[in-house]
Structure formats: C-alpha cells, structure tokens
Simulated scan of single mutants.
Amino acid sequence: MTDTTRKHPIFPPFTDWVDAFALLGGWDGKGPLPGIRVEELVEGDAFVVHAELPGLDPARDIDVTVHDGVLRIHAERHPDKREKQRSEFRYGALAREIRLPQGADDDEIAAEYENGVLTVRVGIARVPTKPRHIPITRIG
C-alpha cells in the first residue's frame, strides 16, 4: 500500500546534497550565503562574468557593486504566495564575490540581464606581461 499523502521525501535527493556542497564552497564554509554559479572569461578588452540567476527581477532582486577590486553580486529570490505541492527552488539571499584581474577599470563596468543570466563587463587595460629590467641606483 502506498501513502499518497506524503508531500516531501524523508531525505533530500542526492543532487541537492551535491549542489549545496558546491554552492557553499565545500566544507570550509566560505561566506555565510550560498554562492551563485558564474563563468569568467576575457573577451577582447573586457573581463566578463556570466552569473546564473534565473527567475529574478534585476531591478528588484539583483545588486551589483564593486569595491577595492572585488566585484560583488548579491541576489534575493522571494517565494511566491501560492501553495506548493513540492518545490526544489531555492529562496533567500545568494552572493558571490569575484576578484577583478589586474588592469580592471572600476569606472568602466556595465551589467545586463537576459534569459536568466546576468552579464557583467569590466574594461581592462592590457598589462605588460614581458619582464622589465629595473635599474638599481647606488646610494652612498
């Protein structure tokens, strides 16, 4: 006989455990908030961050700031008021901090949100990668 009145399993699905481990940065507990999945790349003269944030209103739910060379994305997913039979959606605050690369221009940042993905572009100046000889001045 099957009990059809149970709405939630006794233990969460294995994928929930794996996702929680990945989003929290492993067992070291980095940061108090679950993380946001991101993709970082360089396109031409810009450092680009794609953040996976489906189902959010960027004007209300997402905040992007930069301070001391660190890009911070903070988002909050609010539960709707409908009665649910079952939900695997995560609600509450999410955050991610990303150190910007050398040469990043804090004044040249743009963000856009499309199809559940936040894209942040940060201008970067090309930094010389060749070793440079530094002359030494003798004193005394």
Score class of each variant (00 low, 15 high):
His133Val: 14
Tyr113Glu: 08
Ile136Ala: 14
Arg138Tyr: 09
Asp57Gly: 06
Leu41Gln: 10
Arg138Met: 12
Ile124Ser: 01
Asp45Tyr: 05
Val70Ala: 02
Asp68Ala: 11
Pro131Tyr: 07
Arg77Met: 04
Trp17Tyr: 13
Arg138Asp: 15
Asn115His: 14
Gly44Val: 02
Lys30Ser: 08
Pro58Met: 13
Gly69Thr: 01
Glu83His: 00
Lys130Val: 10
Arg126Asp: 12
Arg77Asp: 05
Arg86Ile: 06
Glu97Cys: 01
Ile73Asn: 01
Phe47Glu: 00
Asp106Ala: 15
Phe89Gly: 09
His67Leu: 13
Pro32Ile: 12
Trp27Asn: 11
Pro9Cys: 04
Met1Cys: 13
Thr65Val: 08
Asp28Ser: 03
Phe21Gly: 13
Lys81Phe: 06
Asp3Gln: 12
Pro128Trp: 05
Asp16Gly: 08
Pro12Arg: 03
Thr15Met: 13
Gly103Asp: 07
Gly35Glu: 08
His67Asp: 13
Pro131Asp: 08
Pro54Leu: 11
Arg121Glu: 01
Val42Tyr: 00
Trp17Ile: 14
Thr119Asn: 06
His67Tyr: 10
Arg138Pro: 07
Ala75Leu: 00
Ile98Gln: 04
Gly123Ala: 03
Gly69Asp: 06
Gly29Val: 03
Ile98Leu: 11
Val42Thr: 02
Asp68Glu: 14
Ala110Ile: 01
Ile73Leu: 00
Lys7Phe: 05
Tyr113Gly: 02
